[in-house]
Write a protein that binds this DNA or RNA. Sequence first.
DNA 1: TTAAAAGCACAACCAGCGTTGTAATGTCGT
DNA 2: ACGACATTACAACGCTGGTTGTGCTTTTAA
Lengths: 237, 237
Amino acid sequence: MSGTDTTKSTGGTSAGRTGTDQPRRGRADKAAAILHAACVVFGRDGYSRAAVDTIATEASTSTRTIYNYFPGGKEELFRSVMEWSSARVRDEQLARLRRYLDPQRPPHPRDLERDLLALARAWSDLMADFRDHFLLVRHILVEAGHLPADTVQAWQEAGPRAVRREFASALAALSDHGLIDAHGDLDQVATHFMALISPNAVQHSYWGVTPLPAEEIDRLIASGVRAFLRAYGGAAT
Amino acid sequence: MSGTDTTKSTGGTSAGRTGTDQPRRGRADKAAAILHAACVVFGRDGYSRAAVDTIATEASTSTRTIYNYFPGGKEELFRSVMEWSSARVRDEQLARLRRYLDPQRPPHPRDLERDLLALARAWSDLMADFRDHFLLVRHILVEAGHLPADTVQAWQEAGPRAVRREFASALAALSDHGLIDAHGDLDQVATHFMALISPNAVQHSYWGVTPLPAEEIDRLIASGVRAFLRAYGGAAT
DNA sequence: TTAAAAGCACAACCAGCGTTGTAATGTCGT
DNA sequence: ACGACATTACAACGCTGGTTGTGCTTTTAA
C-alpha cells in the first residue's frame, strides 16, 4: 500500500523553478512524502505509539529532515497531517457528492434510489481509497481531548462539517422537489443517511482495520439506502 | 512529608472495615478499585498515555500493589479492565432491554413507539451512567490492531455482540407479531436501530467527551426512533 | 498480644523516544 | 569544477514511564 510514491528522487527537476519563493527543488514533494508517511504511521499506531523515526523510515528520509520541515516537532507534524489529509479527502468527498446529487439538477423520482445508492457506494469506496486517512481520523477523535480545542474545532469545521453541510443543502433541494420528506430539520436527515450507510466499515470491522468483502459491503449499503428511503422517501416517490 | 494527600476513601471505597467472610480483607474491593481507576484513566488518556502511576493515584493505592494484583503488568491490567467493565455494562444493557422489550409480552401496536423510545432513552442513559466505560470502549476499538486478536474477539463476543444478538431476537418477536417489517434479515434491523439512536453521543460530541444537553439528546433520540419506525414499522402499526 | 500477610514509599534499573547538534555526504545551479 | 544548500548518519542528552526489589508500616487473623 505505502511506499508507492515515496520515491524521493522523483524523476527530473520538475519542480525546479528556483528564484521565486521555493528555496529548493522538490520541497513540496518531500513535504508531501513526509505527510503521507506520517498519515500512514499515525493512522496505524496512534499519536503516542508512533515514533518519529518510524515515520522517517516510512518516508524514506531521515529524522533530522522531518525536524527541518516541521520545526514544531511531532505535535506540529500531527496537526499538519490532520489539515493536509482532511482537505484532500473533503475535496474528493464533495466532488463525489456533486457528481451523484447535483442540487441544480435533481433526479427523476424513479432514479432517486439509484442516485443515492451510487452516492453511498462512492462514499464507501472513498473510505477504501483513502484508507490511511480514515484510519487517522479514528485517532483524531480519540486524541481530541489531548489536542488544543481550537485545532479540533478548525479540523471538524473544515472537514466533516463542511461535507455534512453541503450534503444537507443537497437534501434541501430534494426536499423542495418532493423527493424526500425531511420530517423535521435537514441536518437530521443527513446524519441519519450517513448513520445508515456507514456502519459498513465502522461497526463491523473496527473502523476498517479488517476490511470486509466487497459484496458484503454492497449488501449493507443497499440495505441502508432502502431503509433511508422508507424513512424519508417523499410523496413523489 | 507527602502525607497531606491522604484524603483517600474519596468515593465509597471504604474497603477494609468489615472483615466478614472474605479470605483476605477486602481483596475484591481493592481489585475493583484498581479496575475502576484503570477504567477511568485508560478511558481518558488511552493505553499508551495512561501511566501506571496515574492509575495507582486514582485508585488511592500504590504502583507496587497494582503489580501485586496484576502480575502481567499494564497489558494484563488493560485486558482485565476490558473484561470487567464490559461484563458489567452488558448485563445492565441486557436488563434494560428486557425491561422495555420483553419478547414474551410484545407491546400493543399503539405502544410500540413508546416502548422503543423508552428503550432508546434507557440505552442512552446507560452511556451517561457508565461514561467511563464507553470512553474506554473508544480506545479498545482504536487499540484493536495492537491487541491479541483472540482477546478482541472474546471481548466483542461477550460484550456488544451479545447485546445485539439478544436485541435481534427481541426484534424477531416483534416481527412475528407484525409490529415491525424486517425487510430482510433481523441483524440489519438491529444495527440500523442502534445506528439511528446512537449518533447522539458519538457523532456529535466525540464519543461523549463533551456531553450534550439532555433535551438535545432527547430530541435526537426521538427523531431516530421515528425514522426507524417509518423504515421498519410493520403492518400492525 | 503477636505473627503473618498486605500495603506502601522509595529507589533503582532499563528501554524507548523526542529533540538537537554536528560533521560528512549528496545534489543542484552556475 | 565549485559553492551553497539540502540531506543524512550518528551520537548524545534528557525525560518519561514500565518494572522490580527492598525494607518499613499497617492491617488482619489467631
